[in-house]
């Protein structure tokens, strides 16, 4: 692509991104420095256009950030989100890696069907899947009934409205996000490598850990990020499956925004969340997303 066509394409695409990706974040950053007021909109302006005052007075309020760091509620919400998301990511990967490996080992004629089965939940509404999962875990749901019928437990397990419930919900929601990249990176590995390892005297399990896993590591890392990041900010799962004492930042933000209508504080919390999430991505960005892009 050369010349004018190239310039026009770049400008069009950039205009779109600037309007719908960049601008919203700038607005959030701006409002996070405002003060909450009762009115429409429910915050103060950053620039005060006083009685013909030129230049306008700049009113920066760092109070929201001070509140975030000072208030145990927010710190706990951040830490709680990170902790639950990390546990959920680990569990999801622990399921996804062997499962994806088994998919690559399946006979060739099964593999397209298995792939469709792995992709299908990805396309299904996460809300509906969480709802279905709640149905399974409920006090009189199938899981408890089977366990009781087997005589393993006497009284129904209380899984819903606990942290375990949240983790299980996150794992169930985001397992497809982990499965696909792990499968994609495993399937790219030349089977001859495993055969070479076996030929050189390496047992299958050892060759999985020494050969397959290191080669699939970028895909596994990508899968981990794809689970971890949305899980940190997840709203539906903690809202529907968590207990009243569960603190996750997504839910806290929602409450702050819709119930308390403190938009500046919610904005500041969002800015912190973005910083929290973007920093690991920036570090891993080159390895995960920009690889294999058209060379200049």
């Amino acid at each position: 692509m050369t010349g004018r066509a190239r310039t026009v394409t770049i400008l069009l695409a950039f205009a779109w991104l600037a309007a719908l990706v960049l601008a919203p974040f700038l607005v959030v950053a701006k409002i996070s420095l405002a003060e909450v007021v009762i009115g429409r909109p429910p915050f103060t302006a950053l620039l005060e256009w006083g009685e013909g005052a030129m230049p306008p007075a700049l009113r920066v309020n760092w109070g929201n950030y001070a509140l975030l760091f000072g208030d145990a509620l927010y710190l706990e919400a951040y830490l709680g989100s990170l902790r639950l998301a990390a546990i959920a990511t680990a569990v999801a990967l622990a399921i996804a890696v062997p499962l994806a490996h088994a998919m690559t080992r399946a006979p060739a004629r099964w593999r397209p069907a298995l792939l469709v089965l792995a992709i299908l939940p990805f396309w299904t509404s996460s809300l509906i899947r969480v709802y279905a999962w709640i149905g399974i875990l409920g006090a009189d749901g199938p899981l408890n009934r089977i366990l009781q019928w087997l005589g393993i437990i006497d009284a129904p397990l209380a899984i819903l409205n606990t942290d375990i419930g949240i983790v299980s919900g996150l794992v169930y929601s985001y397992l497809p996000f982990a499965l696909l990249p792990v499968y994609a990176s495993l399937v790219r590995i030349d089977p001859a490598l495993g055969e070479a390892a076996a030929d050189l005297g390496c047992r299958p399990l050892k060759s999985f850990f020494r050969i397959t896993l290191p080669l699939a590591l970028p895909g596994i890392l990508a899968a981990g990020l794809l689970v971890f990041i949305p899980a940190v900010g997840e709203f539906v799962v903690p809202d529907l499956m968590g207990g009243s004492d569960t603190l996750m930042i997504g839910k806290t933000l929602w409450t702050e925004f819709f119930t308390n209508r403190d938009w500046p504080l919610a904005s500041a919390a969002t800015v912190l969340l973005v910083l929290l999430l973007v920093s690991p991505v920036v570090v891993l960005e080159r390895r995960l997303f920009l690889r294999g892009e058209g060379r200049a």
Binding site: F14, L17, A18, L20, V21, L22, A23, P24, F25, V27, V28, I31, L225, I229, P230, V232, G233, E234, F235, G250, L253, W254, F257, W263, A266, S267, T270, L273, V274, L277, V278, V281, F289
Partner: peptide
């Protein structure tokens, strides 16, 4: 900017778009 929405929780996207 292209990939940012992929790595942002929906709640961040929703809130920031609304404020815009």
């Amino acid at each position: 900017l292209v990939y940012l929405p992929l790595v942002m929780p929906e709640i961040v996207l929703g809130l920031s778009l609304l404020l815009l």
